[in-house]
Design a protein around this nucleic acid. Structure first.
Length: 106
DNA sequence: GTTGGGGCCGTCA
DNA sequence: CTGACGGCCCCAA
């Protein structure tokens, strides 16, 4: 496992229940502001879905990933709903559930 | 709403 | 080293 991946997973763990973050935000939290793409790559190889909430990560449009790593979008959607996140056609309202980076950058 | 192009980054073959 | 390949992003038509 690389440092990059570790940081990404750590960042993902910071997302509070009932909220979601974009790949770009995760990239920033991880310390790689422009590595949104690499983030997706890392998440695909998610080591343990139990502790890393990859289902709380969506793209800048609020859409769920097409090729979710386990169980597909349906599983991702199921988990979000279970947390109280309203999901419509594999899409979430970022202005409602999106996180604010400033709340994580102390 | 839709494409399409350019740029970005880390991994792996 | 080089070149592909993504759970991406942004802006311009």
């Amino acid at each position: 496992m690389t440092d990059f991946e570790r940081k990404v997973y750590e960042a993902v763990k910071l997302i509070p229940e009932g909220f979601v973050a974009t790949y770009g935000q995760i990239a920033e939290l991880a310390g790689y502001p422009r590595a949104a793409r690499a983030v997706g790559n890392a998440l695909h190889r998610n080591p343990d879905e139990e502790h890393v909430f990859c289902h709380r990560v969506v793209n800048s449009n609020g859409d769920l990933a097409k090729s979710f790593g386990f169980g597909g979008r349906d599983e991702q959607r199921r988990r979000l709903i279970a947390e109280g996140v309203y999901v419509v056609n594999y899409k979430v309202d970022l202005s409602e559930y999106g996180i604010n980076l400033n709340d994580f950058l102390k």
